[in-house]
């Protein structure tokens, strides 16, 4: 079980490195898709089937978006990396980050012991024990998402609407800017084109 997890995580790391190092953007997009599908397999192994399904759908959509941004407008290869002091500084910072992460992981419960077992009155225990009687949902993930923490889902919907309107505004072909400028300046000229 844990060996399989380690294998999948190594696969994800290798795919991520390939996605960063390759010069062809199509290979990079496919490699990041491999990272996403690997995480979907990890979710499936760890008892999260809802997450695995969502991750697959999201990865397909992300693949379409990234292909739209690269191949279909004719950008196929990428330029060089940043040179100079930045990669070295980032590598040093990454090593320091890894050391501190290792030190902090020693204080966490080891893998396969959930954090909710270590904390008295953890909310997860309450959700698991009272979820069926108070929400009527046998799927506790959906019970938490749509009932106990429904305001989080409301915030998520707000973020998605903001992103949708931002995307529509940015990708709009015909702008209203010329018309508005003439109105504000009081000129009577009609916008051309």
């Amino acid at each position: 079980m844990e060996a399989l997890l380690i294998l999948l995580l190594l696969f994800m790391i290798i795919s991520a490195v390939v996605a960063l190092y390759t010069e062809e953007l199509l290979s990079a997009v496919i490699a990041v898709g491999a990272v996403g599908f690997g995480s979907s397999a990890v979710f499936l192994l760890l008892g999260a089937p809802d997450l695995a399904i969502t991750q697959i759908v999201v990865e397909v959509a992300a693949l379409v978006l990234l292909i739209r941004a690269t191949i279909s407008i004719g950008v196929k290869t990428t330029s060089a990396w940043r040179s100079g002091w930045q990669p070295k500084a980032v590598a040093a910072a990454a090593v320091i980050f890894l050391v501190f992460a290792f030190l902090s992981f020693r204080d966490m419960p080891e893998f396969s012991v959930p954090v909710m077992d270590r904390i008295a009155d953890a909310p997860s225990i309450f959700y698991l024990e009272d979820g069926l009687s108070s929400t009527g949902s046998t799927n506790h993930v959906m019970g938490v998402l749509l009932d106990f923490r429904a305001y989080d889902t409301l915030g998520e919907a707000t973020i998605i609407f903001t992103a949708v309107f931002g995307t529509l505004t940015l990708l709009r072909k015909r702008g209203k800017k010329a018309v508005n400028r003439n109105e504000y300046s009081g000129e009577k000229t009609s916008p051309k084109g």
Binding site: T54, M116, S124, Y127, L128, V141, R149, D152
Partner: peptide, 14 residues
């Protein structure tokens, strides 16, 4: 397994 991280990560993925 813990349902709370799963619900939050479902939000995060979307």
């Amino acid at each position: 397994v813990d349902p709370l991280p799963q619900a939050m990560i479902l939000t995060s993925i979307v």
